[in-house]
Structure formats: C-alpha cells, structure tokens
Design a protein around this nucleic acid. Structure first.
Length: 1025
RNA sequence: GGCCUCGUGGCGGAAUUGGCAGACGCAGUGGAUUCAAAAUCCACCGCCCUCACGGGCGUAUCGGUUCGACUCCGAUCGAGGCCACCA
C-alpha cells in the first residue's frame, strides 16, 4: 500500500467528531446561507450490522451533503435508530434477552460502522425512537389523531371540538348508521339509498350515543374489524405487512378474524395522497406503486331492488335476529321509497354493461344475506359461509381460479330493463371493497365469466370491440361499442357510461361514485416492544386520552414480555401498570402497542430540533428545515413507511403543526445490491455438476497439489479467452492452468439477493479493513447508477484502491520507507504552505499534526507539485472536469463523476510536474467521494484546516471550448473519415474540407450529392446516390 | 393475470436533446522494470475476413419513422420489481 489508509481514516474521523465539523447551523446562525435537508432512511439496528445496501444509501447522501457544504449550503444531515418493532423483539425472544439491552449493543455497533465509513452526520442530532424523550412525541402525535376528525367539506383534519360544535349548532346531523352528514335542511333533500333512514339531531341523542358518534369520527378509532391475525407472532398485522398470506416478518401464516382494534383513518386522505404526488420529485414508478396501492376507481353505485316475492319468501326482517344489530327503524318521510322494498347497492366501474348483468353476487358476510335467503337455500348458504370463514387467507388466494358460491333463492330487478336476475353469494366478492355486492356481467368480466360458466348462468354480450371480433371462450373486458343496450346502443364505452349513469340518477337509482382499495390502517399490535397507547379504557371499553402532561407514558420494564399466544397483549401482564383511577373512576390502560412504523412516521421532523422537551419540534426550526430536500432509501418502503409518513404529515399540516403539505420533496431509491455472481452450470470429468465455489476450491487445490481439474459449460461449450474452447485450452484447463482467472468466461453466471443462507454477503468491516473506507465508498458509487440493481463484485474494488494510490503518488509522492509508524509516510519539512488561499479562511480547528515525528532518516520524497501555471490543454481538461464532476455529483450520477476524476488523475500521472492549482482543485473534487484521503492530501499540500467547507471549485466557461474541432464525416450515414477544423470555421469551409477528406473521396467519387448535412459542432453527413 | 422497469464486449457499466457505440474500471494479452515476485509504467483488448492497407457485421429478435436509431414507434422473446378475485 502506498499509504496507510487505516491510520489516516481513523485520524480524520476523530478530527471530524471532536470538531463537530458537520454540525448544522441553527437557523438563527445561518445568515443568508441556503439550506438543504439531506436525509437517509434511518436504519433498523439489527444484530447483523450494516449491509452493502446501507453503505450504498449512506455514501450517496454523504457525497451530496459534502458537496453542498463546500458550496456554502447549511446542510442538515442526521441519522438515528428506528428501534421499536417486531424484528428486534423476535430476535430478543429467540436469544432470550431483553430487547432494550440487546439493541444498545446493536446501536453501538451500527454507530461504529457508520463512523468507520466516514459519514458526515451531525451526531448531536442522533435520535432513538425507543427513548422516552422521543416516543413521548410519538404518543403526542397519536393524541392529535385521536382528538381530530376529517371534515369532508374542506377535505382536511380538524380538532374534534369543531365537530361537536357543528353538531350542536345543527349544521351536521347523525345518520342512523352513526355517520355524520350535512344537515339536509340546509342542502335540500339528499337521495337515500338502501334502508330508509332519517337523520337525527345532536340533541335527540343520548349521552352514550353522542359519545359513539364522536368516537366514530376520530382519525384514531377503535373498531371491530376482520383483521390479519398471526398466531405465529401472536399479533395482528396491517395489510401491508402480510405478503402472500404470510407475515412479512418471520413468514408465519396469517388468518382473518374479527377483533376490536385501533385503526387510523388513512382512507380519508386517499384522494389527497394521490393528488399531492404531483408536487413531488419522486420516481414515476414509485408514484405508480402508491397510486396502485391506494387504488382509486371511478364508477357508479347502482341500486337493484329485490323482487317482492323474494322478500316475502325470506320472511324479510324476521330472519335478521342473530346478525349484527340493525339500525333503528324510523318512520319514513313522504315521497321516499317504500320501507318494505329492499335494495342492493352495487359499485361498478362499467355502468355501460348494465344490460349484460345476468345475476348478482353478495359477499358472504353481507348483512342483507340473512334477510333475502329463502328457506330452501338457507342451509347451503350457511354451510358455504362457514366454509369461507374457515379458510385462511392463503387458501383463499390459492383458490382464485376455481370460483365457488351459493344461490340465495332471491332475485333482484335490473333497473334498466326490469329483468329478474338471481342473487348469489360468493367469496370472490369482498365485503371490504365497494358495497360488498356486485352486479355480475359475465360477458365482460373474467371473474363473472368463470362463475357464470361454472353455475351455468346466462352470458349476454353488450359491448363489441371497436374493430375486430369479440374473443371466444372468455370475457371481452376492453372498452368498445355498446350493443343490445337500448338506451346506449352504438355509443363508445366512455360515453355510454356517462349516458346511463345520468339516466339512472334522474330516477334516483344510481350516482357517480369513487372507490379506493386503500383500507384504514390497523394500528395496534399485541406486542411488548412498541410505544404504549396514551389511552385509558373505562369499564365499557370506551377510550379516553391521558393528559398531555402525563407524557411520555413509559413502557413498563417487564421480565416476561413474550406474546401470550392469545389476542391478550403482553402488557396485560403488567398488573400494577394497567390499573389507574381518575376522579374516583376506575380505568385500565390500553395494553396494545403501536406498530413498528409509528416512530418512523415523523422522525424527520425531530431531527430539526432533536433535544426540545417542550415541543416535538420548534415551529421556526420546522419552517426553516422542512421539507426534506433529498430523501434516499430502499424501494421496499414504497407503500409502507412512505405512505404512512405522508399521512401523518398531512394530519399535522391540517392541524397547523407543520408548514408543508408533503414531507419529502425529492426521493431517490437506491437499487438493490445483489450478491456476487454464482456459477453453477459446470460438470466434472465424471459428468457431475459442480458449483463455482467447488471449482474455485478445486483450482486452488490443483495449483497446490498438481491435481488435474477440468470444467466446461454444460449447454454451450465453454469459452476461454473469448474464443471457442480448443483442444489446447482443454489441456491447459486440465492442468488447472489459469482456470481461476478465466472462471467468469466459463460461466453462465447469475446474481442473487445477498443472504446469509447463500453465503454471498459482503461484510463492511472486512472490506474497510482490507481496502479502506474511501475505496469502498468509491467502489459502491462506481458500480453503476444509484437507482439500478447491480451485482456486487469484491474483485473490482482493487480498481479504486489503485486509483487512490495513484492520486497519492501524484499529489504526495512515493514513499521511500516500507515500514512506517502509525500515521503515514513522510512529507518534506519545507514544502507546501504557499497554496493556502487567504481569501476564504478555513473553518474549524487546526489539524493536529499526527504525522510521524519529523524524522531525518526518511529522505525527502519526490514531489511533482510546482507553482508553475497550468498549460492550456490541461487547463481545459481541468475546467471540463470541474463542470462534469459538479453536475454529475449534484444529479447523483456518481459513477460517471468518478470516471472523470480517474481520467484527470490518469492525465496527472503522465505529467512531469503537477501545477499546485490543479492539485488543489483535484483534491477538493475528490473530497466528497474519498474524504479521508482528500483531507490528508489537503493537509499535506500545506493547509492547516479541514476542507469540509472550502469552496467547491468553479470552472471558467471560457476555458471549456477547444480551439479546433474534430468532426466525424459520414457518407450515407456511415463513418468514413474525421476532419479537424478551426472551432469558428463556417459551414461552407467545413463541408469543403469534409468532401476532400481522403477517406471520403472513394465513397463520393462519381456519385451525385443528394444532400450535404452539417450538424453544428457534431458531424457532417453526405447523402449520395 | 394487471401495472412498471430493463435487455449494449469475457464482467460492471458509458453514450445528458436522434449525431463518432463501447468512456471509466475489472478481467485478459504483450512488453518495460526486477535476481525473482509484488507494486508500478507503456501498448493492445466487440465479432468476422485480411500478412497488411482496409473492409464487412454489430446495442435481445423482427419490422417501421429518419440523411442518420442503443436512443423514437409497433410486434415478438427474455429478465427483474410491485400488486394480485379491488367489481
């Protein structure tokens, strides 16, 4: 090694830490500096330590942060620990330790590793989501949600008191289902679908009813809902945490069961969460993922009346006793539909296919089923319902091809043509989406088609393709032209939808409707390691917030924190903790805890003011730093963290606690780093397949022991040195000769995700030890575009080590002595100080001189740094490099920026003398990428303070242009020659020169010029024929 | 099945607005240096034909637009990601 990176890196890490080199300035101290908030997705401090994905993520933002500081920007670049949640707790249980104690060690290890990589974080802002000083405010924000509701008129959250006032003043009324709506007296009559229901005024409600109405409107509310219960983890999970019917953490099976749980009303924000994506500089693909997850569908709700004889046959209302309590029946107002009519409301995105509706399907759990199922069918209906309820999520998904269901015996009336159509129940209709009921149009929906085929129901086409034939044997689901539909015949689908919706809504049978796939966020977990809810429950299970002054509500220290295996959370075992009396009333504490995502929903706000114990974040500081200007992290958070955080942020925005509608302005996903290539298509002499690892081992053995090894590609025949394998190659290979070096040529390799089980994990500790942090940083950034998925290849790091060594040799000099003390080589005592620029003083403290003692045994090293001016050609190259590196770095194109630095350094290697100006400019440009080496070289160039805030080099636009141009000359689009012309030559001159170029002559001689094309500063093209 | 992204040398990748395909690094080959090795330096390094000069082909495949296509359009094949009975 030409220089001792281990000692240099340690030295500078210590210097930065002691001098707080990267501390962000408080807004009051920043003057007119621009600000930038550069954020990583902070790590979950697992026991495994940093992986290469972390290194990629944090190096990228570190480079940007360092560049910006050099450009005079006040940069906030913090980190911390997202330490609550399932993985830590699972691991703690497995290893029989307490999560807190276990995490303390993990966090220390993460901090050490991050510092070892030279990340320029402001360590005074480190936060830990499990610290009471932090989760105090997580709980506080939860109380904001609890104490707010969503005002549908203004589409924003408001304090719950506002709702109470509106109800009290009778601007709002309560519908029988408990929903709140605008008082119809003030809006004229509203259409009422389904049940005949009459709204009630606030004063007509009992105190308990009033309480239920209010609780039912909160953004954080409790509800009995079918949830994802995971017996393996002993907790419920959010939809987002369930993958293919199994838990994301641990991969345990998940089943649906109804439980009373805390929910957050994220659905109220569905529209704004879609709309405001437009404000964001995010990758389009990620925006698409969020849009798809929210899943907006525009369509219509349509009412189907149930045929009167079906109601009579079912005995109508008498049968509903054992189902959920029905809303109170109330006398109907004049002019409304007959109370004895029952109506099924469906949601459809294709109202234009209404004439093709040949049957209906209700979700098995639909409350109307009890009221319409006629006697002879009740038994099959009940047994089908039982069968569905017993199915696990996974079974249900596995069965999507084969449709199942049962006939209710009832019929409905199609409102467009008064046809009687049968009503079925089937589990392909979901209670949780739309109205839990559909009109089935088998001719134009694949699921309906499959069901109709199985149950032998009529299939009636009502749309034909605009051109071509309708497909046979399956549904035609595209848009087209309406047929067999008297009201809309001949209309294209879009117009047909409008027309039929308008027609039906005049009769009160339909109206436009929007549906979302997004469900409310299941927010409680039956786990120990999370934030306790700041909630007390009375003996009826009603929730009351604890006073803000009582926050934080500390998580009780428990020896036995394991899940109970039942829905009863572990905190219920903390007997003393759960019992509370207030004002002579007995309460119990809520024993569920918040999910893993809670702490990360707002941590970026805390970084603006991490030590404030009066407020979650000082408003002035929040206004200064927010929004986050650059947020980098893995795509795995596309629909979890990033959706939840946006939701919380919007609530805080509505309530006036934050100043921006969105938290993360610009977001970049770093691509996954795959493991090293794996080779697996070889055969041994005996014809057995062997892996690459086997071959490597064999090759090593071969060289050591002279055993013959031989391998070739199974399908294609192996290629060596870019040629087909010859007899000679096989002979060489048999002797183990160069086999190792040519492995990849032999291989049909593939890369896989890094994983312990594959044993292809690259460990940052080993890499830093062997190659240094700077080389690792360079390699990880040089692998390819930040966003791209790339295979790891430890072999390639050597290129970056060579680059740094060459830089060192160019700018510092050759080391003469092999064994040096800690520190690094030597520097001549007299050289250097002339370059320190007086115009912009260094900030920070002087660098401690940790160089080896001035030791006269070492001869003065050769140095090629001189004070002579830069020659023109070199000056142009330097200026172009400044431009390119600056632009590429700012645009996160780190790989090409590094390539430019390497090119300039290669040029310096060829120089006999290196002008000081070039040396310093180069060092400054290197600094964001290889900060330790750059600082050390900077010091050895004679500077006494850190370069962290030295101005980034400026280029001189006048020096970018060459005085002559080299232009390619094409004939009929093929390159035939190149000409060199003065940069200011006019078109006629250039065309003349091009035409007489030797390589062009033979192609144009005797031919007619059809066109002479000159693209300024690009090329010349002659079209001849 | 739906939506999205992507197919360039032996490998990672570059080509920023439609204008010299393969920058830069790795691997490889030849040479210099060395007692030797490591390290370093110089040269070569897409495929085919040719002693050479030179020529032909070439960015998954097929077709289109254009003076000109890795880049734009259409189809096909292949890889990856996300969602997945959402009416």
């Amino acid at each position: 090694m030409a220089y001792n990176f281990t000692a240099i890196e340690k030295k500078w890490q210590q210097y930065w830490r002691e001098n707080k080199t990267f501390a962000a300035l408080e807004p009051a101290d920043a003057g007119d500096m621009p600000k930038a908030y550069v954020l990583d997705m902070f790590p979950y401090p697992s026991g495994a330590g940093l992986h290469t994905g972390h290194v990629e993520n944090y190096t990228a933002t570190d480079i940007v942060a360092r560049l910006m500081r050099m450009r005079g920007v006040n940069v906030l670049h913090p980190t911390g620990w997202d330490a609550f949640g399932l993985p830590a707790e699972q691991y703690a249980i497995k290893t029989n330790r307490h999560p807190r104690e276990m995490l303390a060690g993990n966090i220390d290890n993460f901090r050490r590793q991050i510092q070892m990589l030279g990340m320029s974080y402001d360590w005074d802002r480190e936060i830990d989501t499990t610290a009471p000083e932090y989760y105090k405010w997580t709980q506080w924000i939860f109380l904001q949600l609890f104490n707010s509701y969503f005002d549908p008129t203004d589409q924003k959250a408001r304090p719950i008191e506002h709702l109470v006032n509106e109800l009290f003043n009778e601007n709002l009324v309560v519908a029988p289902d408990g929903e709140v709506k605008v008082n119809p007296v003030q809006e004229g009559m509203e259409r009422i679908s389904g049940e005949v229901r009459v709204e009630r005024l606030w004063r007509e409600l009992s105190a308990d009813e009033q309480r239920d109405v209010i609780d039912g409107q909160r953004l954080a509310y409790m509800d009995e809902v079918p949830v994802n219960w995971c017996p393996g983890l002993g907790t419920v999970l959010a939809n987002e945490e369930v993958i293919d019917g199994k838990s994301e953490v641990g991969g345990f099976p998940v089943e649906r069961r109804p439980m009373r749980q805390w929910m957050l009303r994220i659905t109220a924000y569905a529209e704004r969460l879609i709309k405001d994506l437009e404000l964001l500089e995010w990758p389009e693909s990620l925006k698409d993922m969020q849009r798809n997850w929210i899943g907006k569908s525009v369509g219509a709700e349509v009412d189907f009346e149930i045929a009167p004889e079906s109601i009579a046959a079912a005995g109508a209302r008498g049968y509903a006793q054992d189902s959920e309590p029905q809303p109170p029946r109330v006398p109907r107002a004049a002019g409304e539909v007959d109370a004895d009519d029952l109506v099924i409301t469906v949601f459809t995105t294709r109202p234009d296919t209404l004439y093709g509706a040949t049957y209906m399907v209700l979700a098995p759990e639909h409350p109307l089923v009890d009221r319409i199922a006629s006697q002879p069918h009740r038994e099959t209906i009940e047994s089908y319902r039982k069968q569905v309820a017993g199915k696990s999520e996974r079974d249900r998904m596995a069965d999507t091809k084969e449709k199942t269901g049962a006939f209710t015996g009832a019929y409905a009336i199609n409102p467009v043509n008064d046809e009687r159509i049968p009503i079925y129940i089937a589990d392909y209709v979901l209670m949780g989406y739309g109205t839990g009921a559909i009109m089935a149009v088998p001719a134009h929906d694949e699921r309906d088609y499959a069901f109709a085929t199985k149950f032998d129901l009529p299939i009636k086409p009502v749309v034909r393709p605009a051109n071509g034939e309708a497909p046979q044997g399956r549904a035609f689901t595209d848009e087209g032209i309406a047929i067999n539909s008297p009201l809309i015949d001949g209309l294209p689908t879009a117009d047909a939808k409008d027309r039929i919706t308008a027609a039906l809504s005049r009769e009160g049978n339909a109206y436009r409707s929007v549906n979302y796939k997004l469900r409310d966020w299941l927010f409680s977990r039956q786990r120990y390691w999370g934030e306790p809810f700041p909630i007390l429950l009375d003996k009826n299970g009603n929730a009351t917030a604890i006073a803000e002054g009582e926050l934080p509500l500390a998580l009780p220290q428990m020896e036995d924190f394991k899940p109970t295996g039942t829905p009863e959370p572990p905190l219920s075992k903390a007997r003393d903790w759960i019992r509370v009396s207030r004002d002579g009333q007995e309460f119990t504490r809520e024993t569920n805890t918040m999910p893993q995502w809670a702490g990360s929903c707002w941590y970026y706000l805390r970084f603006c003011d991490p030590k404030n114990d009066k407020w979650f974040c000082d408003p002035a500081k929040e206004r200064y730093w927010m929004p986050v200007d650059l947020y980098v992290g893995g795509v795995e958070h596309a629909v979890l963290h990033l959706l939840y955080a946006r939701f919380w942020h919007k609530v805080l925005f509505d309530l006036g606690h934050v100043s921006t509608p969105e938290p993360f302005l610009r977001l970049v996903n770093q691509g996954l780093i795959l493991g090293e290539m794996e080779f697996h298509v070889f055969e041994t002499e005996a014809g057995e397949p062997v892996s690459a690892a086997d071959i490597r081992d064999m090759a090593e053995e071969a060289t050591e022991q002279g055993i013959s090894v031989y391998a070739f590609h199974k399908q294609t025949g192996a290629r060596l040195k870019g040629r087909r394998v010859s007899e000679e190659d096989v002979e060489q290979t048999k002797q183990g000769f160069r086999l190792k070096a040519n492995l990849e040529i032999l291989a049909d390799g593939r890369s896989f995700k890094m994983s312990k089980s594959r044993g292809n994990v690259a460990n940052p500790d080993d890499l830093v030890r062997d190659y240094g942090a700077d080389a690792l940083r360079l390699y990880v950034m040089y692998m390819g575009p930040l966003e791209a998925q790339k295979p790891w290849n430890t072999r390639d790091i050597i290129g970056m080590v060579r680059f740094l060594n060459a830089v060192w040799r160019n700018l510092v000099g050759e080391e003469e002595e092999e064994d040096r003390g800690p520190g690094f080589g030597v520097r001549g005592p007299g050289e250097g100080d002339g370059g320190a620029s007086p115009s912009s003083p260094d900030t920070g403290n002087p660098i401690p001189d940790t160089r080896s003692s001035p030791d006269t045994r070492h001869p003065k090293p050769e140095t090629r740094i001189t004070g002579s001016p830069i020659p023109d050609a070199l000056d142009r190259m330097m200026n172009r490099t400044i431009k390119k590196v600056g632009e590429d770095t700012a645009a996160l194109r780190f790989n090409t920026a590094i390539a430019e630095l390497i090119k300039l350094n290669n040029e310096m290697t060829r120089l006999a003398e290196i002008p000081r100006d070039l040396a310093e400019t180069f060092t400054l440009m290197l600094a964001p990428y290889a900060p330790h080496a750059a600082e050390e070289i900077w010091a050895r160039l004679g500077h006494t303070k850190t370069l962290a805030r030295r101005p980034w080099p400026e280029y001189d636009p006048a020096k970018l242009a060459e005085s002559t141009l080299e232009l390619p000359v094409q004939v009929n689009g093929k390159l035939r020659d190149k000409i060199t012309v003065p940069a200011d030559a006019d078109e006629a001159t250039i065309l003349q020169a091009a035409q007489s170029a030797p390589g062009v002559q033979q192609w144009v001689a005797g031919k007619e010029f059809k066109k002479r094309l000159y693209v300024p500063k690009k090329l010349v093209n002659f079209v001849v024929g």
